[in-house]
Design a binder for these strands. Structure first.
Lengths: 244, 244
DNA sequence: ATCCATAGCCTTACAACGTAAGGCCTCTTC
DNA sequence: GAAGAGGCCTTACGTTGTAAGGCTATGGAT
């Protein structure tokens, strides 16, 4: 019997550590996740984990790679719009399956090999839609922004629910803020997907309009030559600032 | 001389604590921000801060309230589109002035009185655009998602720059991921505002189209009756999932 | 003038954190 | 059998949020 010191657990491995780590994050949240708790869960000591990862940050990056790398492959035979749709919803599914880990994905720059491969794949879809480099860059960013922002909200129900300070009681809220009260039914999780699609469609429609001829999706839009990408409002305005 | 114990600093107050705290967060980041460092900066001991706030979380919420509460008032005489534009850009300016604190704003539910007042104000703009409750709810969410996602990215340059794990060297990245390399010039901070506007305009144009008659901003769009809000794609599809 | 409550700030202490330094087995390879 | 490496652990340090309680100066009540 080579190992009978503590629990009769399996031997350590990157695979097992990462699987258990992801599960633990979902139990205790990102804040509550520590190497010591992970060690307890694994049936080993905290420092044993450092044999496999040089630091906690490296472990978290490995979790990122594992989740992103686990997404299904691009279906190159489909239309770009269908490919984009599937890729976005696969990403969304991953976020929903790991709601408490998702903020880590959303907040950190991931210039790992896996992260770059994922980025490359997304960009290819926009290229295949007929966008040039600038359009690809901007619309990838725009849609990425939207998806990240949406998923942060959709997954935050599982995470830290409320501010630690005194939340305003619901009864007071309803009276003092009528629009908030009126709008509340559409903020429920059951409405998340419909709302998500609404915004995504608006953005992807714009991509389609731009790809179809540089138009903006406004007006009649049947091919009217190559208008510049940026709407007038973009050229006219400069950054606004204000407040404290 | 009532106070000459340590530094000849001013007396403590919520106002001073919060001002110094915001500055410190920008120096050391959210992770590095601790009550002890704040105390040193204030010229007092860590526990003195707890006389003004019951916990660190309460202090952070106060910082949120201070920043949101400091945004300029809505200009009710302007068009809804101009009001929305100014509000969004005022928010963006605040985020850029507090880049390292912004993730806290983006990630937490803020049901404080200030947070709800802000929400109420945003919703009013959508109502004034002519949207009903459902449309207001959904488009507020959609635009909020986009703005939060965009600002997380725009401000993250100042925050934790890279993954702790081995980042792929730029030279390798350029060869292995051609689209990433081609697109890189448009990812620079100098392009942030143009990209931000591109997506925002796409979404607000959709709001305008919907407000003008339930259309989708596609096609000719002159008032063609009240079509249902949701595009066909929304009704036909169910949540997709996949991967590991 | 005295008393006492309160406000304001500090001291001490504890449990939990990431992780550096190094030790102790057990297995592989010669 | 020797040597080395792989795999896991022990101990320890500095940092964190904050509970518990002490000290002092102020201000109102008596």
């Amino acid at each position: 019997m080579p190992r009978s010191r503590s629990q009769p657990r399996d031997a350590l491995s990157k695979d097992r550590i990462e699987e258990v780590a992801l599960a633990l994050v979902e139990q205790v949240g990102l804040e509550g996740f520590s190497t010591r708790k992970l060690a307890t869960e694994l049936g080993c000591e905290a420092m044993s984990i450092y044999h496999y990862y040089p630091s906690k940050a490296h472990l978290l990056d490995a979790l990122f790679d594992r989740l992103i790398g686990g997404l299904p492959a691009d279906q190159l035979t489909l239309s770009w719009r269908e490919r984009l749709d599937r890729t976005v919803f696969a990403y969304r599914g991953m976020a929903h399956r790991n709601p408490r880990f998702f903020p880590y994905i959303a907040l950190h720059r991931h210039n790992t090999a896996v992260g770059l491969a994922w980025l490359e794949r997304m960009l290819t879809i926009f290229r295949d839609a007929g966008l040039d480099s600038e359009q690809t860059a901007r619309f990838f960013r725009v849609i990425g922004y939207y998806v990240i922002g949406a998923l942060i909200d959709e997954t935050s129900g599982y995470a830290k629910g409320h501010s630690a300070a005194d939340p305003v009681p619901d009864s007071v809220a309803a009276d003092a803020y009528p629009n908030v009260a009126a709008v509340n039914p559409w903020f429920k999780p059951s409405e998340h997907e419909a709302t998500f699609r609404l915004g995504l469609d608006a953005l992807v429609d714009r991509v389609e309009a731009v790809a179809a001829g540089g138009g903006q999706g406004e007006g009649p839009l049947p091919a009217e030559g190559l208008r510049p990408l940026r709407p007038a409002s973009l050229r006219a305005r400069s950054s606004r600032s204000s407040s404290r």
